[in-house]
Design a protein around this nucleic acid. Sequence first.
DNA 1: ATGGTAGCTGCGCTA
Length: 257
Amino acid sequence: MSQSIVSWNVNSIRVREEQVLEWMQTHEPAVLGLQETKMTNETFPAASFESLGYQLVINGQRTYNGVALLSRETPKDIVTDLPGYEDPQRRVLAATYGDLRVINLYVPNGQAVGSEKFAYKLEWLSHLTDWLKEETAQHDKLVVMGDFNIAPADADVHDPEAWRGKILFSEAEHEALGKILDLGLDDSFRLFDQEPEQFSWWDFRTRAFRRNRGLRIDLALTSYGLRDHITASWIDIDPRKAERPSDHAPVGVDLTL
DNA sequence: ATGGTAGCTGCGCTA
């Protein structure tokens, strides 16, 4: 029987609590990583998720960022920061479930190519890569998932020519993602034949969802040791159709462990 | 080239 490991940028868990609970009851993920929870650990609505039988690890922050891992199994070897990198922004959460290592990330957006925030994004990704070098060496079965704020290739962008060189689709970002994949990770979505024009994020501002003018920036990277265990890699756009949705859809992998 | 919407906060910042 297969288990889903899922990533979802919820853009405020306060607003999305009911939607996430409902989705979890329907899909029963083994692990659900959330990004942009935007709440402190103290204010996070943990009890309602615990009442569904999930265990929580939270790395929260007021107003911005914030990540969480919800799971059926007990989390072990929890990591909440990129080792050796001082950063007040809460963007990292890793835990081990049985022999599966799961890393949940909210990669900096970067705002605009060449900006200060862009420099931070690249610096953050460089430190992430150093850490993932250790994690890939230590864990045969590893999922690195989250809002990467990088669309890997032309097929992941509704209008590649318009986006080329822009934030989320620049050369420097592709180089950084390439170094991560070179550590021994697959973009699991591309391990399978997929329908074209599948995206995970659509800009609120341009009402992009109505015309499916999206980007696939939410990724589940999987170690080579998981290749024989993955049965699917998917994006569920149904929650994006809801009233007051997040701007991101959940993405996930199904594993037989 | 710009602005559009959403969330948190308290009006500007971030995405």
